[in-house]
Simulated assay, not measured.
Amino acid sequence: MTTGEPGWDPGPDPFPQDDIRRIADFEYLDELKFLRHAKVHVRKTPESLWQLAADFRVAMTVHLKDGGSRRLTIKAPRGLFTDLASVPQALWAFAGPIGRHLEASVVHDYLYMAWTDFRDTGHPSLGRNRHFADAMFLAGMTVSKVAMRCPMYLAVRTVGGFVFRRKPYSLKQRMEDWLPLLDDGHGRSG
């Protein structure tokens, strides 16, 4: 669903329309490119200095519960702000915001924000979309050989629902706030 209004377009729905059984053949298609803002600090969730400087795509085969499968590509868009991996500082001794899980974390952040552009909070597919986002996170960490992937996956399955359901904004609203920060020199003078 896209609007006819000018501004950022969320593009195609990144979520499978059916229940998934598993994800296979996961691959990263692009290099992850960030800008770290020197003076601009976004005070809206996610509070961050990090912004994607280019689109970041992943591809996978999604095997559906009905027996079918299809190839799916997801694009975290240029301009997206991220807090990298949303790991509380008290746990950084085990897994910090940067590590082998970084790429999967950024796409997971995107999916946790993107569902707001395609679903109402009461939509019956809300749980299915969150399950897919979390399964994609695990598949990405598996490909990246993250040692702590099972505890990290269990953490997002345990507490991620609160974050997933409670966003008072859409990604479209945020991207329209965030893209000008990327395009105006990202807070650097001179």
Rank of each mutant, 00 (worst) to 15 (best):
G122V: 14
G99N: 06
F162K: 13
L91Y: 15
R100I: 05
G161N: 13
A85F: 03
G11Q: 05
G96E: 12
E27C: 12
G160H: 13
L84Q: 01
E31L: 05
A133I: 11
E27S: 07
R100Q: 08
D9V: 08
G127F: 09
G122M: 11
P46L: 08
R78L: 02
S189P: 07
D183V: 15
R165Y: 15
A59I: 02
S144L: 11
V156L: 11
V58Q: 05
F56C: 06
H186W: 09
A24W: 09
I98D: 03
R119V: 02
R78G: 00
F94I: 15
F94R: 14
L179F: 12
M113A: 15
A90F: 15
D13C: 00
A147N: 04
V163G: 06
D55C: 05
V146R: 14
A93Y: 12
P10R: 12
T116E: 07
A90V: 04
K75S: 11
G68C: 02
Y28F: 09
G11A: 03
A76I: 04
Y153I: 09
D9E: 00
T121C: 09
G140P: 14
K172T: 05
R130D: 13
H108N: 07
F15S: 07
L138G: 10
R36P: 02
A104R: 03
K65A: 07
Q173Y: 05
G161A: 11
F137N: 13
K167P: 01
M136Y: 10
L32D: 03
D83T: 03
Y169F: 01
A93P: 14
P168S: 07
F118H: 00
M175V: 06
H63P: 08
L29R: 14
D117Q: 11
A85P: 00
F26C: 10
F81P: 05
P77A: 05
M148A: 11
S170F: 03
M141G: 13
